[in-house]
């Protein structure tokens, strides 16, 4: 629950512009962008996600660092399980994880 999960914005939902598809090591889910409305991220940006909501914008390098931190803490698998569990509508299917192994 207290995990901060790094993900990259892939696309903004055309119907619900407060939702965006993010990619977390290959798992794609919708998250809510409402907590970043002062500086809305655009596709390509990296964010930290807490419980299905993008909470802060970060750099790509920091996103990679954060994923490594989760791996070191033994929480990477839990983070990915959490992201897989996000249930907002998904039109985009998963593709296999590439960059970071669980």
């Amino acid at each position: 629950m207290c995990l901060a999960i790094p993900g990259q914005i892939v696309a903004i939902d055309s119907q619900n512009t407060h939702l965006a598809t993010v990619d977390v090591v290959g798992v794609r889910r919708k998250v809510d962008l409402g907590l970043l409305q002062d500086e809305l991220p655009v596709p390509g940006d990296w964010v930290l996600i807490h419980v299905g909501f993008a909470m802060s914008k970060i750099s790509e390098a920091d996103a990679a660092d954060q994923m490594e931190t989760l791996t070191m803490l033994g929480e990477a698998a839990a983070a990915i399980e959490e992201v897989r569990g996000y249930g907002l509508e998904n039109e985009i299917p998963d593709y296999p994880p590439q960059r970071w192994k669980q």
Binding site: D32, V51, G52, F53, E82, V83, G85, Y86, G87, L88
Partner: peptide, 11 residues
Amino acid sequence: RIVYSPADALK
């Protein structure tokens, strides 16, 4: 039910 996000509880 286990949810991973309050948004999912709303869903």
